[in-house]
Design a protein around this nucleic acid. Structure first.
Lengths: 337, 337
DNA sequence: CCGAAATTCTACAACGATGCAAAAGGGTCC
DNA sequence: GGACCCTTTTGCATCGTTGTAGAATTTCGG
C-alpha cells in the first residue's frame, strides 16, 4: 500500500498535519523540521493522494476536453496543443470523444464523470439551438470552435466568415470564377459550415459572381472519405468548376485525390484551397493552399479562459468571446493569381 | 453547490446510506423505497461525487494513456481507439504526451498524477535499458508498442520484425533491389526502429541482396518533416535506389513528396512502402502501399489487458506479451510485382 | 400469536487529505 | 519573573462516499 501522510509523520516523528504543512509550503515550519519531514518523504517515496486532496479542497487540477474524434487530424493536433498547454500549468487533461453526435454531447454535459474535473472545453458539433439550455451547467465551460446555437457562454473561435471570404477572394483574385464548395451542413444555422458558406457567398457577391447551388456539396463529417465522396458527387453533377474550397484540409485532400484520379490537373484545371493548415497540407502533391486558423492560439486561449473561470471567486463575469486571427498559406494547389 | 447523498436522503426521508444502497444496486431495498429515492435523485439532479467514491473505494475508473505526441497521426488514431474502447467500459482516459523524451517518460512514471488513475498504458520511446527499473511501479502498467529495453511487464505490440521482413520481401518480389530505409534509430537495441531494420536485413539476406548502409537514413522522431529531411539526405548521398521503406507512413509521405519534387516518379522510378496504414495513406498521390499493424486490435487489447490487471486480486500473474497480426495493404506507391 | 429467520434499513467508521483554531514553545521587554 | 507576542506545531472536524455490522422491521412456519 502506498505511504500516507501519517506514515511519513510517524517516521519523521511529527504530527501528520506538520507533514501536510511542509507539502503545502506553509511558511511557519522550522527548517530543521522541514528537512526531517522531507527526508521521511523521500525515504518512503510518499506521493500525495490526489483524490483525497480533491475531495477536501474541491480542486481536481484536471480539465476535460471533448472533441468529435481524434481521428480527425485537426482535433488531434488541437488536443495535443491543449494537453501541452495544460501540462505547463500542471494540469491533467481527460479527453472525451463525442463523434459530433448530439446525444453524446448532451450526455457528456450531464455526466457525473465531469465531477472529476474542474471544467470542460467542448467543441460542439451535433447540438442545436433547442439543446442550448444544456449548457447551463454548474461548472466552468468554454466552447472551442464554432457553436451551433446561441447561448451566453465563453467562446473561443476564429473569424470563420471572414476567413472563408478571404479564401474565396483569394481564388477569385487568381482568376477562378466557378468555385465549388465542399462541406456544407444542411439546415445548420450558425456552425462553422454555415459561417464559412456565408463568407463564401459574401465574396462571390462582392465580385459580382453569381451563387450557384450546384457547386455546393454537403458533407456532415469532415473526413477524407467525405471529401472524396463529395468530389465524386460534384463530378457526377457534371457542372463546370475551376476551383474547390474545402471546408477543412482533410476533405480538401480527399477531394484533391479524386480530382486527380479523374484526370483534372491541380492547380491548372482546378485550384484547391483547404482550411486548418494541417501538418500534412505541406506534404501532399500538390501541397495544399489553406487557411491557418491559429490553432496554437486557440488551444492556449481556450485553456487560459477556462483556467480564469476556474480561479474566479466573486460573482460570475459576463461571457467572453475570443477570436483568433487567420492567415492564408499559399502553396501549390492554388497559387496566388 | 451540488446535491449530495445527504440532501437526497433528507428529501426522500431515508438515511443517506439507503440512498447509497439504491445507487449501488444493493439488492435488499424495497421497491417503494427505491422509487422514493429515485424520485428524489431526479428532483435534485443528484450526481455522485466520483472523487469521494474513488477515495473510499480505491477505484477511479480512469486510466492514463501516455503517447509521444498526438501530433503524430499514428498515436492520435491509436489514442482515439483506446478512448473509444474505454468509453465502452465506462472508463475515462487521461492523455499524457511524453514527446518521446526519456526524462518525461520517467517523470510520468513517478508522477503523483497517476494516483488519480487505476493504471497506465505507456508507449515508451526515449527510455533505455538503464531506466527499465523505473517500470517497477505499484500500479498496473501495460506497454503499448515496442519497448526500448528488457523488463518483465505486460506488453502489447506487433510482429515488427516479421512485418518489416514482409514489407521488404514485397519490394524484392516486385523486382526492387536497392531498397532505402528511412527511420533508423542509432544505438537503439530493441525499439521498433531496430526491429524493423532487422526484418529488413533478414529479407535482404534471404534474397542474397547485400546490405548497404548508405541506403539507411536515420530519423529520431517520425514526423513528415523528418521523412522529408531524410529523403533530402538520401538524395544528397547520390547512391542509386529503386525503392524506399519508411518506418512509418508519416515519414514515407514526407519522403514521397520530396522524391517527386526531385523528379523521381513513384512508383516507376522508386517504389515507396510505409508502415501504419494511416487514414491518409489511401488518399496521397500516389496512394501509399503500407503495413497495417492492426491498430484497432492493439488498442483494444492494450486496454483489455490493463483492465484484467486492474481487476486482478490474488498474487500477481506473470507478464504477458500480446502480438497483433499485420497485413500488407497494396496501393499505388508500390504495386505488387 | 410467538419466535426464528429472513429482509430492509441505519449508524458508525473509515478513505487521505486540508482548514481552522487553539496549544505549545521561545523571546523580548518592563 | 511574569505578561505579551510571535513562531511553530498540533488536534479536530470535514469533504462525500462505501463497507461492515448491527438494529429495526417484516415474513412465515408451527
Amino acid at each position: 500500500m502506498a505511504a500516507t501522510l501519517r506514515d511519513v509523520a510517524k517516521l519523521a516523528g511529527v504530527s501528520f498535519k506538520t507533514v501536510s504543512n511542509v507539502i503545502n509550503d506553509y511558511p511557519h515550519v522550522r527548517p530543521a523540521t522541514r528537512e526531517k519531514v522531507e527526508r521521511a518523504i523521500a525515504e518512503l517515496g510518499y506521493k500525495p493522494n490526489l483524490n483525497a486532496r480533491s475531495l477536501r479542497s474541491g480542486r481536481t487540477d484536471t480539465v476535460a476536453l471533448a472533441v468529435p474524434e481524434l481521428n480527425l487530424s485537426y482535433f488531434a493536433e488541437l488536443a495535443g496543443m491543449v494537453i501541452a498547454a495544460a501540462e505547463e500549468s500542471g494540469l491533467t487533461v481527460v479527453v472525451e470523444q463525442t463523434g459530433g453526435d448530439r446525444d453524446r454531447e448532451l450526455a457528456l454535459l450531464r455526466s457525473p464523470r465531469l465531477s472529476m474535473t474542474d471544467g470542460l472545453i467542448l467543441s460542439p458539433l451535433g447540438m442545436g439551438q433547442e439543446d442550448a439550455g444544456a449548457l447551463d451547467v454548474p461548472f466552468p465551460l468554454v466552447l472551442l470552435g464554432e457553436r451551433t446555437f446561441d447561448w451566453p457562454c465563453d467562446h473561443v473561435t476564429m473569424r470563420n466568415t471572414e476567413a472563408a471570404r478571404a479564401a474565396t477572394e483569394y481564388l477569385l483574385d487568381s482568376g477562378r470564377r466557378r468555385i465549388a464548395v465542399i462541406g456544407e451542413h444542411e439546415g445548420e444555422v450558425m456552425g462553422s459550415a454555415r459561417l464559412r458558406l456565408r463568407g463564401y457567398r459574401e465574396a462571390l457577391a462582392e465580385h459580382g459572381v453569381p451563387y450557384d447551388p450546384a457547386l455546393v456539396v454537403r458533407a456532415t463529417l469532415w473526413h477524407r472519405a467525405d471529401g472524396a465522396r463529395a468530389m465524386h458527387e460534384l463530378l457526377d453533377r457534371d457542372v463546370p468548376f475551376d476551383a474547390v474550397f474545402g471546408f477543412n484540409d482533410t476533405m480538401a485532400l480527399g477531394a484533391m485525390r479524386v480530382l486527380q484520379e479523374a484526370g483534372r490537373r491541380v492547380p491548372e484545371d482546378v485550384a484547391v484551397i483547404g482550411f486548418d493548415d494541417l501538418d500534412e497540407a505541406a506534404y501532399s502533391i500538390p501541397s495544399l493552399t489553406t487557411v491557418d486558423p491559429g490553432r496554437e492560439w486557440l488551444a492556449r486561449t481556450a485553456l487560459g479562459t477556462l483556467l480564469e473561470r476556474i480561479a474566479e471567486t466573486g460573482p460570475k463575469q459576463p461571457p467572453r468571446t475570443e477570436l483568433a486571427d487567420f492567415t492564408i498559406v499559399e502553396r501549390e494547389s492554388a497559387p496566388r493569381g
